[in-house]
Amino acid sequence: MALWSRAQQQDFRSRVRGCLLGGAIGDALGAGIEFEALEQIRSAHGDAGVTGYVPAYGRRGTVTDDTQMTLFTVDGLIRAHVKRDSGAWHPPTDVHHAYLRWAATQRDWGPDERRADLGWLGREEWLYAQRAPGQACLTGLTGPDAERLGTVEAPRNQHSKGCGTVMRAAPFGLLAAWDPGLVFQLAVECSVLTHGHPTGYLAAGAFAVIIHAVARGGTLEEGVHLALALLSERPRHEETTAALRAALDAVRAGTPSAERVEELGEGWVAEEALAIGLYCALVAEDVKSGLLLAVNHSGDSDSTGSICGNLLGALHGETALPAELVAELEGRGTVLQLADDFVLELLHGPELHGTTGWNERYPAA
């Protein structure tokens, strides 16, 4: 990536920022209606459903565990790259440790200043809030067995395919210099830390590959076809493959609508959330219309909104995001700072690793 031109580096930075901000915006748009049926949403907000942020967890523009875990995924990936200098290179371990730090935000009142491993993200007090975290994420990262690293052969929560494995997987796709097959595999290996059903971790791998394609300047369709090809090589891929094909079929079925979204499912499980988020990104006339389509349905509105936002943000870059939604987003400064640090690490890591400030922000231990 160091050989990229300045224009390419600027484009990549915009896509990373767009992906993380877009996901957070979609998450916040769906947060206030996550557990409501479409009829309830329309009754409360009009026939068009929500058209902007509605209050959730005490304010407008609030994000949920989807954004929280996505940010800690980025933190884990940065630390993996920092540790690479020492010869230690196993990103799933670093992402696992990052998820354990996220789990601490779900039980502690605030950052434990005695912990040297928190880094700057773990000291962000606004992240210490429960926002309806998924049960598999919690059980996979808490309890006496929490330190055990789940693997594909011995995953955590082996029967779970909840969407919590997909909604945090976009950052793997932002490893733009990696081979798509490696991106897919890393997303799988980090999914089984909490979700062990093949559909759960394969959906995460597919999502990461689609993000990867658009982060490198490709189209959503190119990303989907590459994901389908990689899925075909994996056992028990059928549910995930069928969900992606259903999303493509829905694009050709006619005018986009909430009812058409609901034909793809409710989004509580991984393959349905991926299908809904992808469909809404594929048919979006602009970022805002795609995000609103992704959240106005009966089901897991914040997760489908987050997935759609990750896709559209990576596709179009941060300047395409609706300014009024960016301005009111909870934690915007944290999201942007982490996005920029991720880009700095990928583009200029060796120059940073010997500096005290960087090591304090992302301690390798």
Rank of each mutant, 00 (worst) to 15 (best):
A44F: 04
A24T: 00
L38Y: 07
A28I: 08
D27G: 11
G58P: 06
E39Y: 07
R13V: 00
I25G: 05
R60K: 15
T62G: 09
R13P: 00
R17G: 00
A48W: 02
G46P: 05
A37R: 06
A31S: 12
G49I: 06
V50H: 12
R15K: 07
V54H: 02
C19E: 07
G61E: 11
V54K: 02
V50S: 08
Q40T: 14
L20Q: 03
V54D: 02
R17Q: 04
G52W: 15
E34V: 00
G30C: 15
I33S: 06
D47W: 02
G61I: 09
F35H: 10
L29P: 07
D27N: 15
P55Q: 12
V50K: 14
L38N: 01
D66N: 15
Y57G: 07
Q40H: 09
V54Y: 03
D66R: 09
G58H: 12
F35W: 09
V16H: 06
S43Y: 11
R60P: 04
D27T: 14
Y53F: 15
S14W: 04
G52R: 14
C19W: 03
G46S: 05
R13C: 01
T51R: 15
A56F: 15
G58F: 14
G61H: 15
A28E: 08
D47S: 08
P55V: 12
G26P: 08
R13Q: 10
G26T: 11
G52T: 10
R15N: 00
A48I: 00
V16W: 02
V16Y: 04
C19V: 13
E34A: 01
V50G: 10
T62Y: 08
